[in-house]
Amino acid sequence: MNTSLGRRVAAEAIGTGLLVAVVVGSGIQASELSHDVGVQLLANSLATVFGLGVLILLLGPVSGAHFNPAVTLAAWFGGRRTPEGFPLRDVAAYVPAQIAGAIGGAILADAMFARPLANFSTHDRSASHLWLGEVVATAGLILLIFGLTRVGRAALAPAAVASYIGAAYWFTSSTSFANPAVTIGRAFTDTFAGIAPASVAPFIAAQLLGTALGLAVVTAVYAPNVASARRAIDVPSSEPEPASS
């Protein structure tokens, strides 16, 4: 990736912030327009699918569109023993930017709907079945991202990743946070999409476990590809090379 670290970090902060603004804002809007929880979740998931797909398409060529410390850590771990891998210096820059962006995105969403700013959530999500849901959601996300890059299909990432997250809203008990930064950001809004601060640490622990599990599956299924560890979601600006190359 030839873009300067400063520009990539800015893209990660802005992308993660806008992602959380989409998640929280659509949750607020849905809860104001309908009292049916199923309709609220449907609206929230659809907005997230479209918003995430656009953000990956827009910012993927700049930073790799991680928007997620789990993806960043997986990219570093996958290439840590090679000079072409994702460097630890970039991890140290990406992760704080993602967290700061996520918090800013939650505050922005609350501001747009005239809600109290940085009001901690009271939505308790402390339950073992929810933690299992986060393990499954995160493992699947890591498998998808690094599986796509290892077979030369990174150009499909905007549609594939957004579709997976939309599906995981419904097939996981936790509604698929699958992102430590987003989890932290959603603790700063006492709305439909919020999570109580006390529930954050177990969710993140489950997400990190899911990250390790996802990487293990990638290693077991796909042949090594150093470039995939460096790029993560790297949407090419031109036609992708054939998988056989």
Score class of each variant (00 low, 15 high):
S4R: 12
S4Q: 10
L5W: 06
L5E: 13
R8Q: 14
A10T: 15
A13R: 07
I14C: 04
G17C: 08
V22M: 06
G25N: 04
G25I: 01
I28D: 00
E32R: 14
L33Y: 12
S34E: 09
H35A: 12
D36C: 03
L41F: 12
L42G: 05
L42P: 02
V49Q: 03
F50T: 11
L52R: 05
G53Q: 02
L57W: 15
L58I: 13
L58G: 10
G60A: 09
P61A: 06
S63F: 04
A65D: 00
P69Y: 02
V71Q: 08
L73E: 09
A75S: 15
F77D: 15
R80D: 06
R81L: 13
T82P: 11
T82Q: 15
P83S: 13
P87A: 11
P87C: 10
L88D: 08
A92H: 11
A92K: 12
A93L: 12
Y94C: 05
P96I: 11
I99Y: 01
I99L: 06
A100V: 15
A100R: 10
G101S: 03
A102H: 02
I103W: 00
G105N: 01
L108E: 03
D110R: 12
A111S: 08
M112R: 10
R115G: 02
R115C: 01
L117Q: 01
L117F: 02
N119S: 14
F120D: 03
F120Q: 05
S121H: 09
S121G: 08
T122Y: 11
H123Q: 15
S128C: 12
S128E: 13
L130P: 01
L132H: 10
G133W: 01
E134N: 09
E134M: 09
A139N: 03
A139C: 09
A139W: 00
I142H: 00
L143W: 05
I145H: 02
T149F: 09
T149Q: 14
R150E: 03
P158Y: 04
A159V: 14
A159P: 06
A159Q: 07
V161M: 00
G166E: 05
G166T: 08
Y169K: 04
Y169S: 05
F171V: 07
S173T: 14
S174H: 03
T175Y: 13
S176F: 07
S176R: 09
N179P: 05
T183Y: 01
I184R: 09
G185A: 07
R186I: 02
R186A: 02
A187F: 04
T189I: 08
A193Q: 08
G194R: 08
I195N: 03
I195G: 03
A196Q: 10
A198Y: 11
A198P: 03
S199M: 00
S199C: 01
V200W: 01
F203I: 10
F203M: 11
F203L: 12
I204A: 08
I204M: 12
A205H: 07
A205I: 14
A206N: 03
A206D: 02
Q207S: 01
L208Y: 05
L208W: 07
G214A: 08
A216F: 13
A216T: 11
A216V: 06
V218W: 00
T219W: 14
T219K: 14
A220D: 07
V221I: 10
Y222M: 10
P224M: 07
P224K: 08
P224Y: 06
V226I: 15
R230N: 12
R231A: 14
R231P: 06
A232W: 02
V235G: 08
P240E: 02
E241I: 13
A243W: 12
